[in-house]
Simulated assay, not measured.
Amino acid sequence: MTVDLDVILTARVGSPGRIAELAQSRGKPRDLTGQTGRLLIVAADHPARGALRAGQDPLAMADRADLLDRIVRALARPGVDGFLGTADVVEDLLLLGALEGKVVIGSMNRGGLAGTAFEMDDRFTGFTAEAIARCGYQGGKMLFRIDPSDPGSVATMQACAQATEELAARGLMAMIEPFISRRDENGRVVNVLTPEAIVRAATVSAGLASTSAYTWLKLPVIDDMDPVLAATSLPVVLLGGEVSADQGRQFAAWSRALKSPQVRGMAIGRSLLYPPGGNVERAVDAIVEMM
Rank of each mutant, 00 (worst) to 15 (best):
G152K: 05
D88F: 13
A11Y: 15
V280E: 02
L273A: 01
T232D: 02
A202H: 06
D31I: 03
L96G: 04
M266Y: 05
L208I: 09
R183Q: 14
N109F: 02
R249H: 13
V221Q: 04
E119P: 12
G139N: 06
I198H: 06
P178V: 02
A133S: 10
G106R: 03
A87N: 03
F251Q: 12
K141I: 01
L59W: 10
F124G: 06
D223T: 12
M157C: 15
A131G: 08
Y274C: 01
A257H: 06
A161W: 00
G50E: 11
L96D: 05
P276Q: 14
S271Q: 07
G248H: 11
S153H: 10
A213T: 06
L96I: 05
P47D: 05
R53I: 06
S244I: 01
K141G: 13
V263R: 02
I198D: 04
P220T: 07
S25C: 12
D122R: 09
L99D: 02
S153P: 08
D224P: 15
G27T: 14
S181D: 12
Q24V: 14
F179E: 03
A257W: 02
D57G: 10
A168P: 03
A161D: 05
R18L: 13
N109E: 04
V199H: 12
V288E: 14
R182E: 15
G187N: 12
D285A: 13
D184K: 00
L9P: 06
S181Q: 07
A163C: 07
F83D: 13
K141A: 02
L143F: 15
A161V: 02
N109P: 08
V189T: 15
A159F: 01
L67P: 14
W254C: 12
E166W: 02
L67M: 10
S107V: 02
L95S: 11
R170E: 03
E177T: 11
Q35H: 10
G112C: 07
L40F: 12
D226W: 07
M225F: 11
P276K: 10
F127T: 00
L239C: 09
V3T: 14
R26Q: 07
I71S: 07
P16Y: 07
T164G: 11
V228G: 09
R183S: 14
